[in-house]
């Protein structure tokens, strides 16, 4: 399954004071805190790890149909590779491993997470409100499945997880939407989704 997360760095700086006492300890393991304190740009490291956790958690939630939980320490991040503007890593949640790829810019951090069995993940990031990402995703799903526009609906299940339905029957859920501040994004994987989407 897949997940994603975008952080508007300007908004994050306004909304959240990660330097307040106790914040890092509630969210990050000692190893992760070490990554942060040894980073040149500590804020960037905080939000990179944060977006990795959130994106992986979304994938995990969808894979096992879980309700939201507040436990960031369950998600253990490892950054495997980092270069200008990009990072890749893994996030472990219990026995599950999610691969992450992140885009790091001055304005935002975006992470896409996927479990090992998923391929062909496409990502799209917009400097626009969430409605833009939603509309574009809608178009893409519409074109791929070739269903009539008025039959395609974006819904949420009991856990609050989104899925597409056509004519009131389940169609597709291998996608993730995310929005924060000035940015919104989606990712999706359409490969083999006709046969295995509900179980991936």
């Amino acid at each position: 399954m897949i997940g994603n997360d975008v952080v508007d760095l300007c908004l994050a700086a306004r909304e959240s004071n990660w330097r307040r006492i106790g914040f890092l300890e509630k969210v990050f393991s000692e190893a992760e805190q070490e990554i942060i304190t040894s980073s040149e740009n500590q804020s960037l490291a905080v939000w990179l790890l944060w977006s990795m956790k959130e994106a992986a958690y979304k994938a995990h939630q969808r894979k096992f149909h879980l309700t939201r939980r507040l436990n960031w320490l369950v998600q253990q991040c490892e950054i495997l590779h980092k270069e200008q503007g990009k990072a890749s890593g893994i996030v472990k949640i219990n026995d599950n491993i999610y691969k992450t790829t992140s885009v790091v810019s001055l304005e935002y951090i975006y992470t896409s997470a996927q479990s090992a069995n998923i391929s062909g993940v496409k990502n799209a990031i917009f400097k626009a409100p969430s409605s833009e990402a939603k509309n574009q995703l809608f178009q893409e799903v519409l074109e791929y499945f070739k269903v009539p526009c008025n039959e395609l609906k974006l819904k949420k299940d009991e856990q609050g997880l989104p899925f597409f339905s056509s004519n009131d029957s389940f169609l597709f859920n291998r996608f993730s939407l995310s929005g924060h501040g000035r940015f919104s994004a989606y990712n999706l994987s359409l490969i083999n989704c006709e046969t295995s989407v509900k179980h991936s």
């Binding site: 909304e15 914040f23 959130e54």
Partner: peptide, 13 residues
């Protein structure tokens, strides 16, 4: 937003 949930936990403490 999820980062502010951490703040709420800390504020409650």
């Amino acid at each position: 937003n999820s980062a502010n949930l951490v703040d709420i936990v800390l504020d409650v403490e």
